[in-house]
Write a protein that binds this DNA or RNA. Structure first.
Lengths: 357, 357
DNA sequence: TCCGGATACTAAAACGGTTTAGCTAAATTT
DNA sequence: AAATTTAGCTAAACCGTTTTAGTATCCGGA
């Protein structure tokens, strides 16, 4: 008797144990009494091409559904060489710009059956390389990269191997790698024109020591704007803070910059992140915008819309960037389409005028 | 002669073509004149255990480095059943809270050799299920999920299959699935105590129609707080907006709520997102904080630190949540450690008092 | 009657690793 | 000297698919 009891309690457990194992295409084949190839053809929509009969096709599909079959993507990847994964390498996963970017890219990629693997470099060269290696091991099908310094060589190597790559928000001079960026020079130029038009003359520029093309361009545009307006001693109107400094420290530097000489009536922040810190310190100093100081920033943010009178910004068309980038990548992934002439895209930013100027 | 020319130009191209192909463990084995098993043992640090001689070990490692061998993770996954990937399912990839969360989780997971696959449900049930299926196909080793409605059953199924799962910022009643949440009830309670202490009596509550435990708890805490203070007609002090309404619409509702009756001297926003909209409409209405209206919000944000006098908030310990969650998951992934008693963690939020109250 | 061509499937190789179970020769024990 | 152990390595199965190259059966035509 105890035996019987034992068995009734043990058998279901055993069954559950069996059920736990994922069912494979072989299980389906066995159940249907056919070969795995047949099942594979049917489930991949090649039944007709392979002349599998209607009845069998229906039967197998039915069994598959009933047993809850889910193909093992890893095995598929190994066999086909396609992982259906795209690596997205951004500067910082928690940044505002990249959050928006990611959301759009994700939904867009999904339409074509691709998953995004999301990685952030935090602007460390070594980390960027490690990530690239990892992604390569994972056999991702394509790469979307906001290129940091030190990654050039490795990225070029990818391109040489004909791996689909798209650069976002940065590019390499004299290269054929597709990219989509915003016209940084034009953006700052627009901002400066706006400031001059509003009558501001003593303009300070806060930037960061990241060695990136887009940062360099923004700075160049600022410098040129001053030159064109016959303003001298440009160097002392530029503050370059260190990327890895703590926020407190940067704020202190900005404060010193504002109160120091030459005195200024407007300040231009070259990035989002700097702008937020700027807003914070300006608020702490009790300066009125734009009365005591006008402010403008490259790249938009919730904070800029809401703070005080609103901060005038040069806004990047994030949607457009994301959509264009994924477009360029899918182009390469699904080779079908025409080569597509223009693989290097420069989009126009837009000036959003708010109360701070 | 033309032939020679042809060959010098063709051979390098051919070589490049050869080089393009990723080198496999077989290539290494051939080069070293040993079997693939030997190479595998050596590269996986099992040389000693398998009694491979020091010299051979060194030689193979050397060749591997020289040839730039990178193992194919897909093949490894298929064989070992371990993908070294963790699926992170969040509500919205561009949300502030999740951005921070992701950053910490990513760096933490990396230490143990795991990659994060990042997905967002946008609070749509079907999308959540699709993602779960996708991740399962990808053979991810573990799941971190902010559970949306409609995912319960599927998540339970995962747990039953002994898949490592950790829930974040939500949980299922009466279940044993590990989770880490913040004490939502306590948080709102603290906020209400603070408001009452400051002398506010007519408090409005803005919440959203998401069917989530944490939202329900926040509302319950509000209701209870009013009850405890003998305040009646609680219903008309609560505004529940629809999650999928456009921002404009929600702001209008908030405006009506503020200007409507019963009049209020303080307003409590139950989420970050609502709070930002609140700030925006309050600014537009020209109300002074806290003069015309006091404001408090559940969950912090850059905006709240910087807007006007600063918004008082109930801050979630994001760092702690992330670290604890990844901890619970790794616990399950690397079964070594002790079972670890407490698998369901409730963390305490903290009140950050700013100018708005 | 035999051939050619559909028709309806299947066997087996391949993808690139890991791992179990040996195998051989030398060293050690009995 | 035979038996056993050890050192150093390898053969081959296996993970779960896809896909190429068949095979077997039937049918119509010459």
């Amino acid at each position: 008797m105890p035996f019987v009891l034992l068995r009734v309690s043990v058998v279901p457990v055993f069954l559950i144990f069996i059920l736990m194992k994922r069912i494979s295409i072989r299980d389906l084949a066995k159940k249907a009494g056919v070969s795995t190839s047949t099942v594979s053809f049917i489930l991949n929509g090649k039944a007709e091409k392979m002349r599998i009969s209607k009845e069998l096709t229906a039967k197998v599909k039915d069994i598959s559904k009933k047993m809850g079959y889910v193909p093992n993507q890893v095995a598929v990847s190994l066999r086909t060489g396609q992982s259906k994964q795209i690596g997205l390498i951004v500067e910082s996963i928690s940044g505002h710009f990249f959050g928006l970017l990611a959301r759009i890219i994700e939904t867009e990629a999904e339409k074509y059956g691709y998953r995004i693997i999301y990685c952030s470099t935090e602007n460390k060269a070594q980390q960027g390389l490690d990530i690239l290696k990892m992604l390569s091991q994972q056999q991702v099908d394509g790469y979307m990269i906001t290129p940091a310094k030190g990654m050039e060589e490795e990225i070029r190597r990818l391109a040489e191997r004909k791996k689909p790559v798209v650069l976002i928000d940065g590019f390499f001079e004299g290269d054929t790698i597709p990219y989509v960026i915003v016209d940084n020079y034009k953006g700052v130029e627009m901002g400066m024109k706006h400031l001059f038009a509003k009558g501001y003359k003593d303009i300070g520029f806060v930037t960061v020591d990241l060695d990136l093309v887009q940062i360099a361009e923004r700075k160049a545009a600022f410098t040129d704007a001053l030159k064109n307006n016959k303003i001298r001693k440009i160097g002392e109107r530029i503050l370059t803070v260190s990327y890895h400094s703590p926020a407190e420290n940067i704020m202190q530097q900005i404060k010193d910059f504002i109160t120091g000489r030459p005195k200024m009536d407007a300040i231009f922040f070259s990035t989002n992140y700097l702008g937020v810190l700027g807003v914070e310190i300006i608020a702490k100093m009790g300066l009125a915008l734009p009365g005591d100081l006008a402010m403008i920033c490259f790249d938009d943010q919730d904070v800029f819309r809401l703070f005080g009178p609103g901060i005038t910004v040069i806004k990047q068309p994030v949607d457009e960037i994301a959509r264009k980038a994924i477009d360029l990548l899918l182009h390469q992934l699904e080779k079908k389409k025409s080569p597509g002439r223009l693989q290097q895209v420069k989009l126009q930013p837009v000036l959003v005028e708010r109360g701070s100027t």
